[in-house]
């Protein structure tokens, strides 16, 4: 199949996808729309974590931390001064923040950028030492962020969180960002930079001996991953309308890690498929359980069963199906048509 044909197929399917988004946004039940939004956000998170964990072979557990940074930073920028004033009734918000309001899109970008900077500050020291420490340090980082958010009363409103956030997030925003994330990371891993990242995963010593600057490339993957996590957090915040320091806890990171592991470390396709599946599964399993919880994120005691099932699936996958659903395979038109032809024969 030639390149032009593939390009046409890609454009046609994109157009169909946008049409479907429009149909969904206009006619779909709000409940389903919500799940579809969450699905897109999970795709963003899964694909960006896969860049760090799957393609570069470093293991980060900081995604929830970066998300909360993105969510808080963007919310504080897109909330109106009046809304901030009503929220901060214990202690008023500090000056420049009390006046600023910028459009959603730019607020998201700033949120992502702040997450990326934090990613650099946390990642750089561990990445210099070795991959092992990254997991535990980022794990701690996510919890520390929670502690800080709880304590910075005049910036984050402390444990009260931010309430009544405007719902800017819709299917266009969420899936728009999801498509951009997929595009960006797919292009990156297929580029010369991507080969350098994968070479680090395969053999650090050899990669360095072939001239790959380990520190630069590990940090690159980590910062890009953190950026998209921040964007995902911003989108999620505006979707949930309420955020507090506990919205982004370690269970959320585990869910994202699960998306990556079940989909396959090093397969963007896998993360996309599992991101969407987990978003729906979370809802399906809710019917099994008590219907009391707030959407998917805060996990109070009663809803433990659902997470327990997920945890079991995760452990079984890790032990018995190490390569996940897709291994390192990716969707491509060639692959679809080849398998079709094989079936026809």
């Amino acid at each position: 199949m030639d390149r032009r044909m593939k390009l046409i197929l890609t454009i046609v399917s994109l157009l169909v996808f946008i049409l479907l988004l429009w149909l969904a946004e206009s006619y779909m039940d709000p409940f389903i729309k919500r799940i579809l939004n969450v699905a897109a956000i999970y795709v963003i998170l899964g694909v960006s974590l896969n860049l760090i964990n799957g393609f570069t072979g470093q293991f980060s557990l900081g995604h929830a931390g970066f998300m909360s940074l993105g969510a808080y930073a963007s919310a504080l920028l897109y909330m109106s001064p009046a809304l901030k004033a009503t929220n901060f009734f214990i202690e008023p918000i500090i000056w420049p923040l009390s006046e600023i309001q910028i459009p959603f899109f730019f607020a998201l970008l700033v949120g992502g950028a702040i997450a990326a900077v934090a990613g650099f500050a946390v990642g750089a020291p561990c990445l210099r030492v070795g991959g092992d420490y990254l997991a535990i340090v980022t794990y701690g980082f996510a919890e520390i962020i929670r502690v800080i958010l709880n304590n910075l009363q005049n910036i984050t409103n402390g444990p009260l969180g931010l309430k009544g956030l405007p719902t800017y997030t819709n299917l266009y925003w969420s899936w728009g960002w999801a498509l951009f994330t997929i595009f960006f990371i797919k292009k990156l891993v297929d580029s010369s930079y991507g080969r350098a990242l994968k070479s680090i995963r395969e053999d650090e010593v050899a990669a360095e001996a072939m001239g790959v600057n380990l520190f630069k490339h590990k940090t690159l993957a980590f910062v890009i991953g953190a950026f998209f996590a921040g964007i995902g957090g911003g989108l999620l915040g505006s979707l949930l309308m309420t955020i507090d320091p506990n919205s982004f806890n370690i269970s959320l990171t585990f869910q994202i890690v699960m998306i990556v592991l079940l989909g396959g470390l090093g397969s963007i396709t896998g993360s996309v498929v599992m991101g969407v599946s987990i978003a729906f599964l979370m809802e399906l399993l809710r019917f099994v359980e008590s219907p009391m919880t707030i959407f998917g994120l805060t996990i109070p005691g009663i809803s433990g069963m659902r997470m327990l099932i997920f945890a079991l699936i995760l452990v079984i996958t890790v032990i018995f199906f190490r390569r996940g659903l897709f291994g390192q395979k990716e969707f491509s038109w060639d692959w679809i048509f080849r398998s079709k032809r094989r079936n026809a024969e």
Binding site: K198, S199, E202, D203, V205, A206, A207, G266
Partner: peptide
């Protein structure tokens, strides 16, 4: 001891 990038 050959150190290629095996999965590439």
């Amino acid at each position: 001891n050959i150190r290629l990038f095996g999965e590439l």
